[in-house]
């Protein structure tokens, strides 16, 4: 500690950690975040490198080699996770299935994120009539059962990757809107927003440079939650035969195809099921972790 009386009082104690240093330190100490982030990143890499990593063509049927058992049940290294009822390599289908899950999760969350954030921020910032309209739309949306609406639309339009993405993207914006509205309302009260307005900053500028940076941490959390949500919904739709259509490899579809043989060959359901579970768990852990590490510092 400095023992001399300070000559320039203002020179001291501007030495606290920068927000970035705090973030780095918090990330390093957060096991859930590290695990979630690791698993998600690993799966993203796997999905991108699918053509390189997959040992076989996921569509190639080999009816002579149907339902070969995976390696841990006495199978061979030729098909480490065995083959399905059409003799397709299970590992390769699993790897390509990651593409479908991540694509649907990512794009659906992106679409609903854009819609929900725009609505929520507008409602929170402008209030009044805008808020009333948005709140009404949120209530309308919340009154619709997602799964039933998705089933109906897919049943009418026919199931395909694009339709599933579109339907989920247009259905999952409610949580974005609710959370962004609340966060904007909160940040809007802060005096730095008034200060920017008093400086003469335009409304888009105030929203983009004063409001958004302070609510983006909440946004990231919702993105992860909705990604997981969309991935699970896709699996459910595909399982019901109304999502991604065969022969596209999708984890939900793999569970569905395996369910007839579930009693005799439980691994057909277990393998895609466990992978789905791990991905959703990892995304949720990542979201939770991001919320923890980006939480604003409490005043000392």
């Amino acid at each position: 500690m400095a023992l001399q009386p300070t000559i320039d009082p203002l020179l001291e104690e501007i030495s606290g950690p920068t927000p970035r240093q705090i973030l780095r330190k918090r990330v390093r100490g957060h096991m859930g975040l590290l695990f979630g982030l690791g698993v998600v990143l690993l799966l993203v890499v796997v999905a991108i490198l699918a053509p390189v990593l997959a040992p076989h063509d996921p569509y190639l049927q080999d009816l002579g080699n149907r339902m070969v058992k995976p390696i841990f049940m006495g199978g061979t290294w030729e098909h480490p996770l065995g083959t399905d009822h059409l003799g397709r390599d299970y590992l390769s289908r699993l790897i390509y299935g990651a593409r479908v899950s991540l694509l649907i999760g990512g794009v659906a969350a992106l679409i609903s994120g854009v819609i929900g954030t725009a609505m929520g921020v507008a409602a929170g910032f402008f209030g009044g009539k805008v808020d009333a309209v948005v709140t009404f739309l949120i209530n309308v949306r919340l009154a619709m059962p997602v799964v039933l609406v998705a089933l109906a639309v897919v049943a009418i339009m026919g199931g395909s990757l694009q339709v599933v993405i579109g339907v989920l993207g247009l259905l999952l914006w409610d949580r974005f809107a609710v959370v962004m509205r609340a966060s904007t309302l909160q940040v809007r009260q802060r005096e730095y927003v008034s200060a920017a307005q008093a400086i003469g900053a335009s409304t888009p500028r105030v929203i983009l440079s004063e409001i958004m940076p302070n609510i983006v941490n909440n946004l990231i959390v919702i993105v992860t939650l909705e990604m997981a949500h969309a991935i699970l919904l896709e699996a459910a739709l595909s399982f019901l035969g109304l999502g991604v259509q065969p022969p596209t490899p999708s984890w939900g579809l793999m569970v569905s195809e395996g369910k007839n043989m579930m009693l005799f060959e439980p691994w057909l359901v277990l393998i895609p099921g466990v992978v789905l579970f791990v991905l959703v768990l990892a995304i949720n852990l990542m979201g939770d972790g991001l919320r923890d590490v980006t939480a604003p510092e409490s005043r000392s």
């Binding site: 400095a2 001399q4 009386p5």
Partner: peptide, 19 residues
């Protein structure tokens, strides 16, 4: 002038001496 010293770690002597 100055600010309250950090009270983390061993504090010896008069805490006001810095100001």
């Amino acid at each position: 002038p100055g600010i309250v010293p950090s009270l983390i770690g061993e504090v010896q002597g008069c805490a006001f001496r810095t100001r």
